[in-house]
Design a protein around this nucleic acid. Sequence first.
DNA 1: CACTGACTTGTTCATTGGTCTCCCACGTCC
DNA 2: GGACGTGGGAGACCAATGAACAAGTCAGTG
Lengths: 346, 346
Amino acid sequence: MNKSVGIKDVAAAAGVSVTTVSHVLNDVAYARVGAETRERVQEAAHRLGYGPNRLAQALRTQRSGMIGFISEEIATTPHAGRIILGAEETARARGYRIMIINSTSTSSQDSKESQVADLLDRQVDGILYATMYHRKLAVPRNLAGLPAVLVDSEDISNTVSSVIPDEVRGARSAVQTLIDAGHTRIGMLNNTDDVPATHSRLRAFKETLADAGLPFHEELVQSEHSEVSGGYQAALRLLKPQSRPTAVFCYNDRMAMGAYRAASELGLRIPDELSVVGFDNQELIAENLHPALTTVALPHYEMGAWATENLIDAIEGKTDLALFAAHPTVLECPLVVRDSVAAPAA
Amino acid sequence: MNKSVGIKDVAAAAGVSVTTVSHVLNDVAYARVGAETRERVQEAAHRLGYGPNRLAQALRTQRSGMIGFISEEIATTPHAGRIILGAEETARARGYRIMIINSTSTSSQDSKESQVADLLDRQVDGILYATMYHRKLAVPRNLAGLPAVLVDSEDISNTVSSVIPDEVRGARSAVQTLIDAGHTRIGMLNNTDDVPATHSRLRAFKETLADAGLPFHEELVQSEHSEVSGGYQAALRLLKPQSRPTAVFCYNDRMAMGAYRAASELGLRIPDELSVVGFDNQELIAENLHPALTTVALPHYEMGAWATENLIDAIEGKTDLALFAAHPTVLECPLVVRDSVAAPAA
DNA sequence: CACTGACTTGTTCATTGGTCTCCCACGTCC
DNA sequence: GGACGTGGGAGACCAATGAACAAGTCAGTG
C-alpha cells in the first residue's frame, strides 16, 4: 500500500545517517549526539510519523516483543476471555503483544508441540499456556527450557512454572460465610469429575466444618455432573424434607442455578429458607439469578496478568522462572457477596 | 536459549548453498535443482528440525503472515470469544496468525488510531476490527486504505468493508416460529438503547405480524434496558391479565430470563401458558433456563471466519475489499429451537 | 608553534536470516 | 564452436542495531 516511512527517510529528512537516527530514537547510552542534532532527528521522525519496523528490529536484536498465547477452548467459557484480557493488558503495558493460538483439550501431544514450534518459528519471546479449567497436564516437550508459564494448570513434571487459583481457601471462605450466617446444617453439591477442584473443594468443605466444630454428614454431600441439570438433580436429593440442610455450598454457579430451580419447585425461598453459595462467579448467572448469587470468584484476569508479568520478567532476565517451577503460585479467590445467604429460619 | 537451526545450518548439512535450500524448501517454480540434491536438502532440513525464521522471511518478502485483531471488550461478553475463534481457526488454516489487541468502546479516536499504528509497525498484513455489539462507527482514520474488515459493525462512511448479522431475518424467524405455533396475540420486550438492533428487531416484529395478517398493538411492546431486570420489569407490565399475550418475543436472552422470572411469579407456565423466544443464543442462559430457551443465534463464529477469509483473500490479491465496502455483508442468524415455544392454551 | 591527547559528534560497515535476481560452469547437440 | 539446457551459487536486499572508527575542536604542553 502506501510506502510506510523507514529509518532511511528520517535520516534523509534530518540530514544524518541512519545510525544516528537509531541512536537518538533508542536513546542509546553510549551514543554521543549533539543536542541540536538530536532535536532535528526527533522532529523529523515525528513529522514523518515514523515508527520503527518491529520485525527488522526483532531480527537484529533477537527479541520480537511478542508473546505466544496458547489457549484451550477460547470460546467455550467466558473465563478464557478474562485470562486473555489480563495477559493482553499486562503485555501491552510492557510493550509486548500477544499472538494467540486456539487449542483444544483433546488435541494430541504432537499437535500441541507443533503449535509451540509454530510460535517459535515466529520468534516469540515466551509462551503462555492456558487451560480451560484447573488441572495437571503433560506440557508439550518443546516447551521445557524456554520462558513459559502455565495458566490455570500445573505441569505434571514440575518443570514449567504455573499459576493457579487457591481453590481451598476460596471454598473455605464460601463455607465460612454460611457458618458465619448461623448455619449448622450445611450441604454440598459436588462435581463428579476427577479434577483437582472436585477434591479440594470437598476437602475445604470438610475442614471448614471441622474447624467450626460442626459434624460432617456423608448424606449432605450429593454429587452429579457439574451442569445446571446435575445441580438440580443433586439438590432434589439433598433437599429431602427429613434431612434437609438450611444452606448449600455448590461446586459451581451452574450447579447453584440447578439448586435454585430445585428450591423453587420445592417451595423453598432463597435465602430465607435456603442459603446458597456458588463458585466461579460466572457473571451471567451469578448476577442474574434471583436473588443474586453469592459466590467465589476465580481470579482469571489476575492469573493472566501474573503469568504475563512474570513471563516478561523472565524474558528480560529479571526473574528466573525455574524458581517458581517447583510449586505453582496460588492466587486468592475472593468471595463475592450478593443476596443468596441469610440466617437460617428460626 | 538453544541456538535454533537456521537455513545456513541446513545448507551446510546438505552441502549446498543457502539459495538452493531456500529454493527447494519453498518449491520455487523457476529454480532448477536436481532430484537427488532436492532430496538431500529435504532430509537435512527435516533431520535438523528446521523451520524458517518467519520474521526474516517477512522482512524480505514484505508479508508477515500476521493479522491484527482489535477487539472491543474482549472479556465482557462470551461473544467476542466466538469471533476470535472463528478468526483464529480460519487464519491458521491459511497460514496466518492473529495478533490481538483489546480496545474499549469508550476509548478515544486517538487511542484507537495508535492501536492501528502499533499493529502497522509490527507489519501486520491486515486488520480485523471487532465491536462488542452491532453498531455504526467512525473507524480510525489510518484504517482506511489498508486491508481491513469490520466485524459486527458498520463503517459510518462506508469505506471499510464489514460483516454483520442479519438482524431482520433473524428476528422475523423468531416471530414467525411463534405465529407458526398458533399464536395471534404476541408481545415484544424491546431494548431502550438507540442501536440498530433495537430498531431492526422491532421492525421485523411488526413486519412479520403484518405479513401474517395479524394486528399490531402498541401496548404489546414494552421497552426497558436490555438486562435481566429490565426484562423482568417489562414483562410484568406486558403480562397484565387484562391484555396478556400468549407469547413474547424478547430483545435478547437476558431479557427473556427476566421474562421467565416474571412468568414464574405470575404463575404462568412456560411454554404451556406463555411461549418465549429470545435472541443472541447466550448458551449459558438459553440452554440452562427451564424450559430451555428457543432463541436466535448471532453468527459470531461465522462473522469472524468470513471476515478473516475475505481479509486474507484481499491480502493475497484474490479479492478487492472495496467491492464489499459499499454494503455490509449480512450473515444469517439461525433459529435455535429448544423448549420454550408451544401452541397457545385453548 | 606544532604536537599530543582527550573529547565531541557522527559515520562506516558488518550483521540478523532469509528471498530473489542474475550469473556462471559444464555438457551436449547440431 | 555457438546455442541451449541443466544444476547451482554469488551477492544484493529487506530495515533495523551496534561495534569500531574517523573527523573536527580545543586545551595543554614542551
